[in-house]
Amino acid sequence: MHPIARLVLILAVAALAFWLVMKLRESTRGDTVSFRPVEDLPPTVQQSIDLALAHGKRVTAIKLYRQATKAPLAAAKAAIDVREWKRG
């Protein structure tokens, strides 16, 4: 087999393997994140989160949310993103 044909074949197989791995990851990743809205939390927690967001402290707001709900990081970030979006 010609060396260039062999190289093209190897590259095609590598590209196919990469594509298959990406599709497998995509199907098992589970893009849905469920969370409890900040509006459902006690008023004191809501106020603390809003105060942290008003001062530009997103990380603090996420930490406060996680302390109140025991939610994983992705869910807490999603909840705070929604809260920021609703606040404008």
Rank of each mutant, 00 (worst) to 15 (best):
T44Y: 03
E39Q: 13
A78T: 05
P42L: 10
S48A: 11
V33N: 03
V8L: 10
Y65N: 05
L20V: 13
P37T: 00
L53R: 06
V8G: 02
A54L: 14
S27Y: 11
K77H: 04
S27N: 14
P42V: 14
V38E: 00
A68C: 04
K63T: 09
K23S: 10
T60C: 01
I10W: 06
A12R: 05
A61T: 00
A17Q: 07
E26Y: 10
A68I: 04
Q67C: 02
L51D: 12
R66Y: 05
T32S: 12
K70C: 02
L41Y: 02
A75D: 10
D40G: 01
E84C: 14
I80W: 00
L64A: 01
T28G: 12
A14W: 09
T60M: 01
T69I: 09
A5K: 13
Q47N: 09
I4F: 14
F18S: 11
T28N: 08
F35H: 08
L11K: 01
T69W: 15
R87G: 06
H55C: 00
S48F: 10
A14V: 15
W19S: 05
K57R: 08
E39C: 15
L64H: 04
R83Y: 07
T69K: 08
A78S: 09
V13I: 09
A79L: 05
A17M: 14
I80N: 00
I10T: 09
V38D: 00
S27V: 07
Q46T: 01
L11Q: 07
G88E: 00
F35C: 04
